[in-house]
Nucleic acid binder design. Sequence first.
DNA 1: TGGTATCGTTGGACATACCAACGATTCTCC
DNA 2: GGAGAATCGTTGGTATGTCCAACGATACCA
Lengths: 154, 154
Amino acid sequence: MRPIDDVTPAALRKRPGWLIGQTSVHHHRLLTAALGAANARPYHYRVLASLQEFGSGSQVEVGRHAGLDRSDVVATIDELVDRGLVERTADPIDRRRNIISITPAGRAQFRRLDKVLANVQDELLSPLSPKQREQLTRLLSRVLEYHTDALSER
Amino acid sequence: MRPIDDVTPAALRKRPGWLIGQTSVHHHRLLTAALGAANARPYHYRVLASLQEFGSGSQVEVGRHAGLDRSDVVATIDELVDRGLVERTADPIDRRRNIISITPAGRAQFRRLDKVLANVQDELLSPLSPKQREQLTRLLSRVLEYHTDALSER
DNA sequence: TGGTATCGTTGGACATACCAACGATTCTCC
DNA sequence: GGAGAATCGTTGGTATGTCCAACGATACCA
């Protein structure tokens, strides 16, 4: 088998954007396969993680925490309600809003999925030492914060 | 505006997979906007870059260089042929195959898009110093090579 | 009370990644 | 020389993630 260097053009290989994109594809494959075994998909984890950390909130708030479009929040919450992992109730104070809460079953599923995520990170970063993982995380965090702040300040 | 630390759950923020995925989303936005202005999209650049570096080849070879599924190669080459950027001819030696070649107009478009890609990398990584960009590139390359080799050795 | 903003929903569009099945062609082995 | 396996390219999808517009209901403010 030829090494990757002989297959991918340098015009791509030298580009961090390409490296990030392709690594993301591999990560998504690992994540989707692992979550699929637990009858979940990435959006479920994102919503459950948001509710677990920030507590109950409106759909807009949950979407902001989870980084999801409002319409995708609706669809994801529909699926989680169907599985008894979250509850959707009307806000008595403001009837425009729903209040989304995690259920005990949702907390249990979050704990299960959290382990899955930890395993997937280990597998994704297995060629790196702990120090290199820290370095990668720090550099990516800085890039992501820069772009996230730039977006929300428009 | 609240800093990102107050918005995203730690369960996501601490995960390199999440950082890579979200950074990739930002990269894709920048890239698609910039390429769109040049009437191109990411698959076009991948195919042109492969032909520019490796020369003419079959669709399977082009797909392997560009990291594209065979059916996506067909669609992308269709678009590039329509725009006069590549040529598709039958292989006289093996009538199962087509030979894909870049045209002079394709080379010119590749040079134009290559500048676009360079600008997008600069914008994507603007919060990092040159040394940090090298570090990020090295770490990501190692991770990507590991997973690409693992995939092709199955 | 009218105008603006917010919330949630519905109904999409689009790009990327990926897969199965098929017909035409090539190659190998008996 | 022919059967079987493999390759090539194409067609026709599916799944997922990201993103957007428009609408009705509701809340708030001047």
